[in-house]
Nucleic acid binder design. Structure first.
Length: 586
RNA sequence: GGUGGGUUCGUAUAACGGUUAGUACUCAAGAUUCUCAAUCUUGCAAUAUGAGUUCGAUUCUCGUACCCACUACCA
C-alpha cells in the first residue's frame, strides 16, 4: 500500500536556524512537494535548559522568507499550532506541549523488556566518567556497565519500587541488546551495519522534568504523525541504530520511515562544520535573517545583506545536490520538479561566497526595472533622497526638476529617473544596494571634490583573495593604478590646462546639442565633434568623466549626460575645473 | 581512544567499469571601448595514497593518510 508522503522538519528552538538547517528544511520541502506530500514543522523543545526565546519565531520567519511554507504544524499567521484541527490533526506540534503522551510509550518498552529504570544520579555518572578518564578509558552506560550500576535490572523489585516513588531523578534507559548487528539502509548512503556492542543505553525519559529525550520523542512523534521519510543532518547517523531498535521494540517496523542523512555544511576553509561565528570571521552571513542574541551580539543575515530569497534558496539547493544536468539557475518550481535524494552528495559542502554573489547577480538581472526601483527606494531614502511618484505634486511642493526628472539641489527625483539609472547600471551590480555604490554620482553632484574622488576611488571593487588558491605563474604583478584610490595628488595625470579646454569645449557642445537625446546619438555626436576638433579622444572623454563623476571609472560619458542633463553637466564641469585648478596650483 | 561517515581542478559538481576526465564560480589573457564594468573568445587548474579484482578502475574490494560527525538526564 502506497502511503502519502509526509516529511517533517524538526528544529530545536535553541537559537537561530543557520544555513545548514535551512538547507535541511529545504530538502525536506522539495522532497515533499516532489512527491505531492506534506511538509510538517515540529518543534523539538524537550530540553528546557536550552530554550531560547524568539528562536521558534525566527525559524518560522526564516523559512517563510525562503518560501518554504509548511503544510502542517504552523498556521497562516506563522504560529505553531496548539490545538488539533482538520488541517493540523496532530497538534500540538511543540513537544513540550505533548509531554503527557511519551511516558506510556516508555513504560510499554519496560513492560516488554526493552528498557529499564536507572537510578544513577547525574553526579554519580559524572564520577564514573571521571574515574574512567583517569584510567585512560571512556565510561559508557552499556550492556556491561549496567550490570554494576543502580537500575531496575540489578536492584531487587521492592527497592526499585521504593526508589520510583521516593526519588525524582531517575530515568528510563533503552536496554541495548548484546552483540546484534543492526542492518540499516540510508537513502543517500546506502547500506550500513553496526554492532550493538558499540552502542550505549540511551536515556529515553527523565523523571526530573517528565520529558522524553530526543530519541523517544522523535520516534514516537514520527510514528504518530505518520512520517514516511526522515531527512536530517549527518550528525544523527550515529543514533540511527538506536532508532531502528526503537521502531522494532515498539513493533512499528512495518510503518518505519525511510531515512536520509544529509552531509553537513563546512566552514569555507573545510575544517569543521559551519558555526555561527564563522560568518563574522569569513565575511559572510551564516544565518538567513539577522539575529540578536540575548547578550546583544548581532549576527548578520542573508536577507539584511541584500540577498534575494530566490537566490539564497537556489544557491543552497545546489550546495550538495544537482539536477543531473548543467542547469544552475533554478526557481523553486524547477527545484521541486527535479529534486531527488539519490542525487544528494555524500560529502560535506563548503560555502563559496563568490558563487553566492553570482547567484544574486543573476537573479537581480532577471528582475524588472520597476521592481528594482521599488527595492532601491529605501536605500535612496537612507541616503537622503526623496523619490516621488507624482512629479506634478512635487513641483507644487517646491521641487525644481530638470529636463531629466531630477532636482539636484533638493535631492528630489522621479520614479522615472530611478528606472533610468537602474536600466543603465543593472549589469554592473550584484545587490540592490550596489546601485548607490556604483552610481551615486547620478544622484548627488560632487560636493567636496577631492574627497569625493578619494571616496569614489576607494569604492572600486576589491578583488577577493582565496588563500588556498595556488598563484597563477603567468599572472602579472597587480597593477595598483587600476584599483588604488584616486588621490588628489594624482590630479595632474588626469587633468591639466589642455584637458580643461577640451572638456570645456565639449560641455559647450553638449549644451547646444539639440538632436536626439539618447546616449547612442549623443555619444556619436560627441565623438564626431572631438575628432573634428582634432583632440585626443581619451583625454577629452576621460576628463569629462572625471568632472562628472569625480572618478576615473564609470559609465559612458554620454550615458551620464543623458541621465543628469545639460545644466548639471555644465555645473559639474565649472565646479570641477575650479577645484582641480586649485589642486594643481597647490 | 572507540564507532560511523566521507575524499574528482581553489570552490560547487558531472562522468552504464571504456571520455582528450565535462560544466559553473573564481582567476588569467585576448577581443571590444572614452575609462571601469558588462559581454564574447581562449586559457590555468582535479580523480588523496598503496595494493587487489579486471583486457581496462574516478567508478568495485582491502589497507593507509587526511577530514567530519557521534561518543550527555542536548538536540
Amino acid at each position: 500500500m502506497e502511503r502519502r508522503t509526509r516529511v517533517r522538519f524538526a528544529p530545536s528552538p535553541t537559537g537561530p536556524l543557520h544555513m545548514g538547517g535551512v538547507r535541511t528544511a529545504l530538502y525536506n520541502y522539495l522532497y515533499a512537494k516532489r512527491h505531492g506530500g506534506d511538509f510538517i514543522i515540529r518543534i523539538e523543545d524537550t530540553d528546557s535548559h536550552r530554550f531560547v526565546p524568539g528562536a521558534e519565531q525566527y525559524i518560522i520567519e526564516a523559512l517563510n522568507w525562503c518560501g518554504i511554507i509548511p503544510d502542517e504544524g504552523v498556521d497562516e499567521n506563522g504560529k505553531v499550532v496548539e490545538t488539533p484541527s482538520a488541517k493540523h490533526p496532530h497538534a500540538p506540534y511543540r513537544q513540550s506541549q505533548r509531554k503527557g503522551i511519551y511516558r506510556k510509550y516508555a513504560e510499554q518498552l519496560i513492560a516488554n523488556g526493552y528498557a529499564y529504570y536507572a537510578f544513577d544520579t547525574p553526579e554519580e555518572l559524572e564520577a564514573e566518567r571521571k574515574k574512567a578518564e583517569e584510567e585512560g578509558e571512556t565510561f559508557i552506560y552499556n550492556q556491561v556497565s549496567r550490570l554494576r550500576l543502580r537500575n531496575s535490572l540489578t536492584l531487587p523489585e521492592e527497592e526499585t519500587k521504593r526508589l520510583l516513588e521516593t526519588t525524582t531523578d531517575w530515568t528510563i534507559r533503552f536496554k541495548m541488546p548484546q552483540d546484534t548487528v543492526v542492518k540499516m539502509d540510508d537513502l543517500i548512503r546506502g547500506h550500513i551495519e553496526v554492532n550493538t556492542d558499540t552502542l550505549d543505553d540511551k536515556v529515553l525519559w527523565k523523571r526530573a522534568d517528565e520529558l522524553p529525550t530526543y530519541h523517544l520523542a522523535n520516534i514516537v512523534d514520527d510514528h504518530l504523525m505518520e512520517i514516511t521519510e526522515v531527512i536530517r543532518g549527518e550528525e544523527w547517523l550515529p543514533s540511527l541504530p538506536l532508532h531502528y531498535m526503537l521502531y522494532k521494540a515498539f513493533g512499528w517496523e512495518d510503518s518505519m520511515p525511510r531515512f536520509a542523512h544529509l552531509s553537513l555544511l563546512l566552514k569555507p576553509d573545510g575544517k569543521g562544520k559551519l558555526s555561527k561565528r564563522d560568518g563574522d570571521k569569513m565575511g559572510f552571513p551564516v544565518f538567513p535573517l539577522k539575529w540578536t542574541s540575548s547578550t546583544g551580539e548581532v549576527y548578520r543575515g542573508y536577507r539584511e545583506d541584500g540577498y534575494f530569497p530566490e537566490a539564497f534558496v537556489n544557491m543552497l539547493a545546489l550546495l550538495g545536490w544537482n539536477p543531473g544536468d548543467d542547469r544552475e539557475i533554478m526557481s523553486m518550481e524547477d527545484l521541486i520538479a527535479s529534486f531527488s535524494l539519490d542525487r544528494v552528495i555524500k560529502s560535506g559542502a563548503r560555502f563559496n561566497m563568490e558563487k553566492a554573489h553570482w547567484f544574486n547577480r543573476e537573479y537581480l538581472r532577471m528582475k524588472s526595472e520597476e521592481s528594482l526601483a521599488e527595492l532601491l527606494d529605501p536605500v535612496l531614502a537612507e541616503m537622503g533622497m526623496q523619490v516621488v511618484d507624482c512629479p506634478v505634486c512635487a513641483i507644487t511642493a517646491g521641487a525644481e526638476f530638470n529636463e531629466t526628472g531630477m532636482d539636484f539641489t533638493n535631492h528630489i527625483l522621479t520614479k522615472d529617473y530611478v528606472r533610468k539609472v537602474i536600466a543603465m547600471t543593472k549589469d554592473r551590480v550584484s545587490f540592490v544596494k550596489d546601485f548607490w555604490t556604483v552610481a551615486s554620482y547620478l544622484f548627488v553632484s560632487p560636493a567636496s571634490f577631492e574627497q569625493f574622488m578619494i571616496k569614489a576611488g576607494s569604492w572600486l571593487p576589491q578583488k577577493a583573495v582565496d588563500p588556498n588558491r595556488k598563484p597563477d605563474p603567468r599572472a602579472k604583478v597587480a597593477d595598483d593604478s587600476k584599483t588604488a584610490p584616486f588621490l588628489a595628488k594624482d590630479v595632474e595625470k588626469y587633468w591639466n590646462a589642455d584637458t580643461d579646454s577640451y572638456v570645456g569645449g565639449l560641455v559647450s557642445f553638449v549644451e547646444n546639442y539639440s538632436l536626439e537625446w539618447t546616449p547612442e546619438a549623443l555619444a556619436a555626436a560627441m565623438e564626431d565633434y572631438i575628432k573634428a576638433q582634432g583632440w585626443p579622444m581619451g583625454k577629452a572623454m576621460n576628463g569629462l568623466r572625471l568632472a562628472l563623476t569625480g572618478a576615473a571609472s564609470g559609465l559612458g560619458v554620454a550615458e551620464i549626460i543623458t541621465v543628469i542633463g545639460r545644466g548639471e553637466t555644465a555645473r559639474r564641469y565649472r565646479y570641477a575645473s575650479l577645484r582641480l585648478k586649485e589642486s594643481l596650483n597647490a
